[in-house]
Amino acid sequence: MRKLIAFLIKYSVVILFIALELLSFGLIVNNNGYQKSVFFSSGNTLLASFYEVSNSVVEYFFLRQANDGLSAENTQLKNEIVNLRNQLQSMTADSTVRKLKHPIDPQNEIAYIYAKVIHNSTNKMQNFITLNKGERDGIKVDMGVVNEEGVVGIVSKVTEKFSVVIPILNPKMQINSKFKKNNYSGPIVWDGKDYRFARLNDIARHVKFSLGDSLITSGYTYSFPEGILIGTVDDFTIKESDAYYNIRVQLAVNFRTLSHVQVINYLNYEEQHSLEQSVIQ
């Protein structure tokens, strides 16, 4: 007996070592045992909460990819909406009566091209936006640019891989707008002061409107289809002697945070343009 105890003491470390190794080995072999695998795994509530904290920090590093993915998906969904809307319109009684060979209203034939803003300014007198898509992606001069908030601007120059957009925040740019509720139209021009506001001109004295009214694209240009939000009436003044209102418009798009845009490809541009040119000459 004493010999046994002496033996155990002498080899206690070795015995402990073997016991622990057998225990570990048992864990490895019994990897599938349900209870053990839950307790010694990241399914354990405590460990899971550790991972949750860690993830809440790390996920910020992947927001950019998430954004890209969402924007691409958004563009795709918008295209789908346009297609479905066109189909719907072609099925309404109105168009079947006309018996057009063309089932879709031609001015609605548009497709969206998704692009990312790679350069943007809001603090200059003449601001420009650069996009990461160009000719090879189907972008052409004069196409309209929007994002999910509203109208951004119009494409002014295109190279093979990039394009430059003149945003509303540039006095060279005039966007034809109209009141959503009564169709009175006038050009919106930026006065170079504040990236949040622009001016609406040519609204005559007799026009009735109020603060907060929406201004949308008129649809008279090739660039934008009708009905895209540009901004809302923020403030207006009129002097006794004036014939036109002096209206300040709050722009729908926040140009400071612009990151993803959609370029509007009006599919019947060539046809309409050449037709109109032939009339002018």
């Binding site: 190794e21 225990l23 570990s24 080995f25 864990l27 990897n31 010694f40 990241s42 991972y51």
Partner: peptide, 12 residues
């Protein structure tokens, strides 16, 4: 092991 879901391997 518990964090990496490999019960016993690191322990061994």
């Amino acid at each position: 092991d518990s964090f990496t879901n490999t019960p016993g391997v690191h322990a061994f």
